[in-house]
Design a protein around this nucleic acid. Sequence first.
RNA 1: GCACGCGUGGCCAAAACGGCAAAGGCGCCGGUCUUAGAAACCGGAUAUUGAAGGUUCGAAUCCUUCCGCGUGUACCA
Length: 921
Amino acid sequence: MGEPASERAGVPGSERAVYISMDEKYFAKKIEQKWQKKWADSRAFEASMESNKPKFYQLEMLPYPSGNLHMGHVRNYSAGDVVAWYKRLKGFNVLHPIGWDSFGQPAEDAAIKRGVNPREWTEANIDTMQGQLQRLGISYDWSRQMAAHRPDYYKFDQWFFLKMFEMGLAYKKKTQVNWCETDQATLSNEQASGGLCWRCGNPVTKKDLEQWFLKTTSYTDQLLDDMAAIEAGWPQNVIKRQRDWIGRSEGAFVDFKISMPTGQLDKAAAGAPNTVRIFTTRIDTIYGANAIVVSAEHPVVTSRHASLPADVNAKIAEIVAESLKPRDREEEVEKDGIDTGLKAINPFSGEALPVWVGNYVMMDYGTGAVMSVPAHDERDWEFAKKFHLPIRQVISEPHMEHEHHTMQALALDHAFTDHGVLVHSDYWNGKKSETAKKEMTEYAQKHGFGEVATTYRLRDWGISRQRFWGSPIPIVYCDNCGIVPEKYENLPVQLPDSIEITGTGESPLARVSEFVNTACPNCDGPARRETDTMDTFVDSSWYYYRYTDPQNADAAVDPAAAAYWTPVDQYIGGDDHAVMHLIYARFWTKVMRDLGIVKFDEPFKRLLTQGMVVGETFFDDSTGKRKYFMPADVKVERDEKGKIISATASDGTPLKHSIERMSKSKGNGVDPDEMVEIYGADASRIFVMFAAPIENELVWNEAGIEGAVRFLQRVWRQVYRWRDALSAHADRTTPSAQSGDHPPFSKEGSQAARDLRRKTHQTIKRIDESLETLQFNTPVAALMELSNAIGDLEADPATATEDEVFAVREAIESLALMLAPFAPHAAEEIYSVVTGSDDGMVANEARFPEFNPDLAKSDEIEIPVQVNGKLRSRLMASPDASNEHLTEMALADEKVTQYTDGKQIVKTIVVPGRLVNIVVR
RNA sequence: GCACGCGUGGCCAAAACGGCAAAGGCGCCGGUCUUAGAAACCGGAUAUUGAAGGUUCGAAUCCUUCCGCGUGUACCA
């Protein structure tokens, strides 16, 4: 690559007879610095509620301040800025804020590894990244920045927690966490992957810990049903994933009575349940049940521990122990279980079924017990095969309706899980599954051993983290009063300024006595604080409300500010947050609605999920752990398609390669700062938007970025070439590319000028439509085409006709305005030259150019003529020529008659304005 | 396994409702300039739209099957 533009920056432009002087060459850095300063000085992007324009809230997902921006951020924020600029130019009062998800583990890890202060580390990172974003020229309202780790923000995490505590939405419960005995630390699932502690390498166990939960499940139906209101504005796959995640499943509960095997007394503890309730979605298969299978933790077995045979108890203990081991997601667990000796009576058939403990039944879903119907459920099939349990088919193919229902069906070689017709099912023989489900549930209900039931996959949200760098949970434990919420006036419960974080032990806060020891808010006696902190998803559940009222010390947000700006009109972010963050944020909004803070159900009207930015990685995993190599240190062989054949390290070690999410540690990261330094912010942003559709994965390939630079340079050159001719017309009071202010072309007006105006207006239409539908790559292509069209006009600026100058002016001014969302600095500069005002588009209330259909229309169009679908000729016709006229012209055409002579014309198809097709035989 | 999505020149990609000879960029080739190269500029070539069937006057677009790739998810009863 050649001499970087930046090194040439700073050359002063020569004074010319134009209102705004212009360098002959495009100096990215000079222009970018100029406009970044102007925008900051004029507070161009600071939003205010004092406006008579309609509001538009453009939001991008809250970044974690890791220290450096990566290309995924650049992609996300460039896209957001396209929307923000577009809406601004469309006359909206735009709110476009940014902030920091600044609580979380990396800061704590840095503290452990390098002994730095997490607060200082975090603040320094925020500084760095803010600078990077500013150099990219993203049009944020910096005055509204929030950062989760600052007490003025997390105060309200705590406020919300207390409110939820009052509402019964926050509660404490014992649950299992990954636990490293050696380090005495809880671990997230990722940190415990493979069953080994990521820090010390010792096996991880599970441990029961008291944890705080937020009752997301009390909003399950709303979370599910309210999606109907936002469905149109959200990607289908996100909607689907949320539905799956919530996992509503409709079926029935059925109670089975427990009896001990013949000859044995029931030695169960007093109060041991004598029924087992199962959940099933297929009650129609109940005559095929061969066993009841319960989870190892099910009360029906735990309460009978004393009476169960020793080998049964041993096996149950083994299953429990096995289930406590963390395992890889991919690993398939073999079915295991044991017959407890208990019997359960099928309330439909009266049959006594064995009660098994099975490792595939989960205690925390449904009732922790299932009826095993091997003929019609794959898991039960597998279980029955392994333990040689009987398999009885009770559902037959649908066409068997009214046939011989009692006949033994064909021997099955796999579970038949479809709906069908009941057989071997007594009274219900011959009925369809759907009918039987309904009737059997009603029957169970009527006879008191069952009911209609709906279960969900969604669990409550565990927010406790045994960590330092998070928002303290505002709860106090008092020997006299028990669990006591902190008083509102005592918020925020502040993190201690500096503590030693070693990475071992329980929550680091537990060792800070000034923090732990406190007075009970209730009785003022000695008490201890909760030392767990909140999940950082808490912070990101409501930050977008804080932006609307960021300085408020008394409330999370003023309802009036929230009412003005929210809900968010357009949200843009990574696909990876499709489920968790977006469910939590939706939940939080519903809680805020119930608190009367907002009046709507859903926080994000429209959502766009962008694809990841990925790059090639090279690594050696022969040691079991991946060691990454920088691409510069790798010798790569490629085939003619560019696919990698082999890669070797400089010392000759053969390396594996892959395409992975960009990151510094993997050596495939691109530093946005470096890119901005070399190519400029505008070119970088254009390239990132142009390279691939926003929702696709973007495989990083830097080669293309020079095309973006060339495009900007070409536009610049065109503006420079025409600057004198344009400036002579730059004295209008209202700068505008609107078309109505120029009379229609005189008959003598050149065809070239007419063509350019047509291209301009066609481009306006295209770009407008693309931006409305959130396509960012095609508008860039359209701008390139428009710029090519300007270049195609051969007229000399000095001698051009008035029509031609007007057409060029309209094209360039439109181009500048439409370029603003992608390359705002260059666009502002060009706009200044064209309009003679150096105050910027915002101050000038610049508007997106308006499309004029009359100008976009060609006066004559070419109509292809096909014979039997094959192109044979073309006609020139007016765009509104009648079908009859076109048909006549086509049939008279010589090239057409060659193919139609002597044949019978079967029919003629005319697509108005498009083509004529003559079908002959 | 299940669900969803995608296959268009060497590469990234565009083409309302099925309707012209399938955009744009990168790369490539040639030219101008230059001692030469690079950059820049100008010009040019390059596609039976993954495969096979089907529907239709007409298919990149709709349907079926297959092949390849990607994403999500998994004992959820």
